[in-house]
């Protein structure tokens, strides 16, 4: 079967972000960019399913601006077979991304879509669920274990208070949690080979999707900063502060 993996280019999770002075967003010039960590886990899972003989082809997709192709090449170097870049000129909202992926799933007759549970920039946690809704197919979000069983996929999910296991009929949509796997690194020969793998560039119009903006980001601001704390010298001093000054114990 064919699997579609959606990936997103984001600011490196270990980089300290800087806000633009005019309140319009976060500075991304001269900032290290990377594949969103949850998407990387989705790519790794697709590769493992292919290695186990369940998947015949991995199509990696990114909806974004021109520079997203860098992350698509990385995914190809990791083991994806081909890439599709849906080029947009502004940050698309989750519902738009879901509509584009829905159209692609049909076009590619994909049986499985793997996505990260959330991107670490916008922290929305929406696209996989929206894609499942539009496809009218089952979903398993926050997956920590994925097993293909014939025409079904069995997924263990990380939920409030523990774990839950669901069985979904394929085609299905899965979003990955951190503990699903440990993504591999791309080797140099594979990075070289990835340059020759196909990467198609298409537009939302090609997929018959209108890019709409239903939400206005009015302003991006810094969160309130905490007042400077103090180092205490002893446990007794700490207890005194918590009891008498803060009155929290």
């Amino acid at each position: 079967m064919r699997v579609i993996v959606a990936i997103k280019r984001v600011v490196d999770p270990y980089a300290k972000i800087r806000l633009k002075g005019d309140g319009t967003g976060v500075e991304t010039n001269n900032v290290k960019m990377t594949i969103n960590p949850f998407c990387e886990i989705a790519v790794e899972e697709a590769i493992r399913l292919k290695e186990a003989g369940h998947v015949s082809e991995i199509v990696v997709v990114s909806v974004g601006m021109n520079d997203s192709q860098e992350q698509l090449r990385t995914a190809l170097a990791l083991g994806a077979d081909r890439a599709i870049h849906v080029e947009v000129d502004c940050a698309p909202e989750p519902l738009t991304v879901a509509k584009l992926l829905h159209s692609l799933m049909i076009k590619e007759s994909a049986q499985l879509a793997l996505l990260g549970k959330q991107s670490i920039d916008t922290d929305n946690n929406q696209v996989a669920q929206m894609l499942a809704a539009l496809s009218q197919r089952p979903q398993a979000t926050f997956a920590s274990k994925v097993t293909i069983e014939g025409e079904c996929v069995v997924v263990t999910r990380e939920v409030e208070g523990g774990l839950e296991t669901l069985k979904l009929q394929l085609p299905a949509i899965i979003s990955t949690d951190l503990r699903l796997n440990e993504p591999r690194y791309a080797s140099l020969p594979n990075i070289m080979k990835a340059k020759k793998k196909p990467l198609d560039v298409i537009t939302p119009q090609d997929l018959g999707v209108e890019v709409s903006q239903r939400q206005h980001v009015l302003e991006i601001v810094s969160p309130p900063t905490r007042k400077a704390g103090v180092l205490v010298a002893s446990v007794a001093e700490l207890i005194d502060k918590l009891k008498n000054e803060e009155k929290v114990i």
Partner: peptide, 8 residues
């Protein structure tokens, strides 16, 4: 957004 390092 951004792990709480900015507010939108």
């Amino acid at each position: 957004i951004y792990a709480g390092n900015a507010l939108a």
